[in-house]
Computed example of a mutant assay.
Amino acid sequence: METKIVVEKADKTLFEGDSGGLHAWSKSKTPLLCDLKVGAGKLLLHPFGFALPHYSDSNKICFVLEGTFTSWHT
């Protein structure tokens, strides 16, 4: 089975506000996500923006592509 990976922009905007936005790739337009049974999203934070803590029933992996990250976990 051959898989072709193509870099695409997220096709759904889930939230857009003053501090940033949350974008996602839909499984209908990105069949590889459906095949792998995973989801994909991008959290874009503007300078001094922050993401509120939230509960999720699934694991998440985060990568900082540009800038810095500060965690307040104790």
Rank of each mutant, 00 (worst) to 15 (best):
Y55E: 13
N59E: 15
L36V: 09
F48N: 15
P31I: 09
T70K: 05
V38K: 00
L45S: 13
E16A: 12
Y55N: 13
G17H: 04
A24H: 01
G39C: 05
L36D: 06
F63H: 08
D18W: 02
L32M: 13
G21S: 12
G39S: 10
K27T: 04
L22I: 14
G20L: 02
T30K: 13
G39D: 09
F69P: 00
M1Y: 15
N59Q: 14
T70N: 03
L65S: 03
H46W: 05
D18R: 09
L52G: 13
V38G: 00
K4W: 07
F15G: 06
L44W: 05
K27I: 05
A40I: 01
S28L: 05
L43A: 10
D11A: 05
S71D: 02
F69A: 08
G21R: 04
T3A: 11
L43M: 07
V6W: 01
S28Y: 03
G39H: 06
H73V: 05
H54F: 14
F48Q: 15
T30G: 01
L22S: 08
K12V: 14
P31A: 07
G67R: 09
P47D: 08
H46Y: 04
D35G: 10
T3N: 15
S26E: 06
T74D: 00
K60I: 10
